[in-house]
Amino acid sequence: MTAIYKRELRSYFSTPLGYVFSAVYLAVSGLLFALYTLRSSSSDVSSFASMMIFGFVALLPLLTMRSFSDEKRLRTDALLLTSPVSATGIVLGKYLASLTVFAGNLLLSCAYIIPLGKYAAEHSPISPARTFGCFFAMFLVGACFIAVGTFVSSLTESQVVAAVGTMAILFFFAGIALFNGMIDSYAIRTVLSWISLYSRFTNFTYGMFDFASLVYYLSFAAVFVFLTVRVTERRRWI
């Protein structure tokens, strides 16, 4: 697993992908941060965080689109699958590498808080708990999205199909909350808001540690990682 993790991580930055992703990620997050905090004279990063989730819908598929589809297209999966490494090891190595690149960028974007703290100090000082909650929740949502992206990329040989397919699925999970208001049935609304990745977000932005949501996010990611493992194992049986 570590060999695959290291290779994946290195390959992000020996191809343009890692740099392009980081550049776009930091540009988009910087712009949104400026708009939703500095420009609106607020020290609350929660609206920035919830906007970023929609940014993730567009950005994170770029990070995962290549992970399995390229191996299949170039037949390099033959090396991985005939090596003494389990399918779980292969999938986790790749998943964690994508997660690391994302987490690194997220960590870099934490630096935005420094100028915010400088300007906001007088009137409305930053709440450390709420700010930490927002970034932590962003990390959890990102981890879920990357799991979905890794899964979709294991289904196809085409990077484009992987990216667009992932975006569609992510848009569904992130967008449920938006459409929820239009639905009359209470039962459907409850179910939808329960599976919505977006709705689970709010408690973290209030600085509360929401254990149920944490479990939800982690199991969401685990389910998709597990599905990817199954797809990888199944490849032998086709």
Partner: peptide, 30 residues
Amino acid sequence: KKKIGFLPEQPPLYREMKVSEYLNFVYELK
């Protein structure tokens, strides 16, 4: 799998790696 060295029909090479990097990767992988 530890007992087998396998060259598939299409060699499983990562184009963005150097030869030595690649062999080191395979060394760790195996």
